[in-house]
């Protein structure tokens, strides 16, 4: 995550209304292309409408496309989604290819995603199939037969010898060895 993403609203991946479980429903319901008929900033939009709009409409019959000319104003792509979101894209000085790319992006989205960062690229509502931990999960079955109070279970679990004990052991062994040697002499 970079600094520019710090103030974006964090979100998880979601699917509105179980989309795609039965059938896939395109979430973009309507697009309005607003442009000016003689302003230079709308040139790409005009060319898009002349050359590529019909192909786009044929490709995506589930999206209603409206064209709205208005004088001396910046071209805008206004997208409306099924969940009620509206997204404006400022298409000033865009080329026709850029507009087509934006439209394809809007079509593949499920809502207005501007100002949102995904916390993770995966999400699940059921993080554990196994279920929650309880005091009895992975419990040793032998404990069922133990009668309390039990002296083995009341002390500490550590069975390893400490360094001091080991040294004492070595010392004892050495002494014994010396005694045996002197006897042999």
């Amino acid at each position: 995550m970079s600094n520019s993403h710090l103030f974006l609203k964090p979100a998880f991946i979601t699917t509105p209304g179980q989309n795609g479980v039965g059938r896939y429903v395109c979430q973009l319901q309507r697009v309005v292309l607003k442009f000016c008929k003689n302003n230079g900033s709308s040139r790409g939009m005009r060319e898009f409408i002349e050359t590529k709009l019909m192909d786009f409409v044929k490709e995506s019959p589930e999206v209603a496309v409206y064209v709205k000319p208005r004088r001396h104003r910046t071209p805008i792509i206004k997208a409306e989604y099924l969940n009620g979101d509206t997204q404006w894209v400022n298409a000033r000085n865009f080329t026709e290819d850029e507009i087509l790319k934006w439209l394809k992006l809007l079509k593949s989205q499920s809502s207005d995603r501007t100002g949102i960062r995904l916390r993770k690229l995966i999400h699940t509502d059921f993080p554990s199939v196994q279920g929650p931990w309880t005091p009895y999960t992975f419990r040793d079955p032998q404990l069922n037969k133990v009668e309390f109070p039990c002296p083995e279970l009341t002390g500490p679990f550590i069975n390893e010898t400490s360094a001091t004990e080991e040294l004492l052991e070595l010392y004892k062994r050495q002494k014994l060895g010396n005694v045996e040697e002197s006897r042999a002499e």
């Binding site: 059938r23 429903v25 395109c26 319901q29 019959p61 589930e62 999206v63 209603a64 409206y66 409306e80």
Partner: peptide, 22 residues
């Protein structure tokens, strides 16, 4: 309501609706 907007064509919307639900 969206239908009160200038850019609104009920027939087109119905056509798109049918395509949307297949």
């Amino acid at each position: 309501p969206r239908s009160s907007y200038l850019e609104w064509n009920y027939d087109v919307e119905l056509h798109c609706f049918q395509n949307r639900i297949g």
